[in-house]
Design a protein around this nucleic acid. Structure first.
Lengths: 155, 155
DNA sequence: TGAATAGTGGATATCAACATCCACTTGACC
DNA sequence: GGTCAAGTGGATGTTGATATCCACTATTCA
């Protein structure tokens, strides 16, 4: 994958939270639902908290919830919260005369990164949930074609 | 970077070879020119050899050269030789009911990967060298606007 | 044939990403 | 206040990518 495992985990968690807005979800619940190692997910959620994408609540009945509407969260924000998409801004070889003036090779590589960045900046978490498909994010498909929203469903 | 360091090294080596077609380039020469650790570059070149992108010649006067014209080598081929761009073909959570039917989240992620793949498959090494720019690949810029092609130039 | 050049490939070292563990703090409820 | 649920954060373990080392083989040239 061209994205890190951590970014994948973060996206799963955010999508799960968006799909369960209202009640706070515990790390254990999210971990079970998203198939992410619980202790590692804990760290990922902390990073998402630092980026102000989720808020945490300690104590009984606590857990994590989104700080804003899924419409207002982009895939890029989630990825950048845990594993920033690094653009190529200066010559990787350290050539002084290149400076900001990337050679065609690195121009190409950075263009590709930029394209990804744009696409992800233009995609909200809400859009991901809204997209009609046979497979609901993080859930096993149901006979009705639309996956169950609660319960022990996984995905 | 969304590409591995190894992929970056491989591209530098291929571009250098394309820019110096004719005479075989030793690992040391390529390493010095591309600012890649020589012993590691050796492994990268071996991988490029296995992918039949370069040929090697042992002994005095030996070194590496391209197996074909720069027009016939794409960036994608180079990257895939050392660090294959992995597409998402099945649900990363292992949900059986998803199968090939990716949920919208993974559909988006794979679409992004596919876009990169396409862009790189459509770009030849020759095109990279041909692109008019102030910075020649792997070379310090010269006053004339076009970088030197031989000698101790670096990039 | 001998010496020098240069790639090959296996063993090992280093480092960051990924993952786990656990003592501590916070908060809800009785 | 006591107890339990739940997040926090530091320490540690694991693994794969990156990097280094070196003995060996192939090739050229005198």
């Amino acid at each position: 994958m061209i994205f890190s495992q951590t970014a994948e985990y973060a996206l799963r968690a955010i999508v799960w939270l968006a799909d369960h807005d209202g009640a706070a979800q515990t790390t254990q619940q999210i971990a079970a639902a998203t198939h992410v190692p619980p202790d590692y997910l804990s760290k990922v959620l902390q990073a998402l908290g630092r980026a102000d994408l989720v808020r945490s609540q300690r104590g009984l009945g606590g857990g994590f919830s989104l700080t804003r509407e899924p419409e207002a969260i982009t895939i890029l924000q989630v990825i950048n919260a845990v594993d920033p998409l690094k653009r190529i801004t200066t010559c990787p070889l350290g050539l002084k005369t290149h400076g900001k003036n990337l050679c065609p090779l690195h121009r190409k590589l950075d263009d590709a990164t930029a394209a990804i960045e744009e696409a992800f900046a233009a995609t909200s978490v809400a859009e991901v949930l809204r997209t009609p498909t046979n497979s609901h994010p993080l859930c096993e498909a149901t006979v009705g074609g639309r996956a169950a929203k609660q319960g022990s469903s996984r995905g």
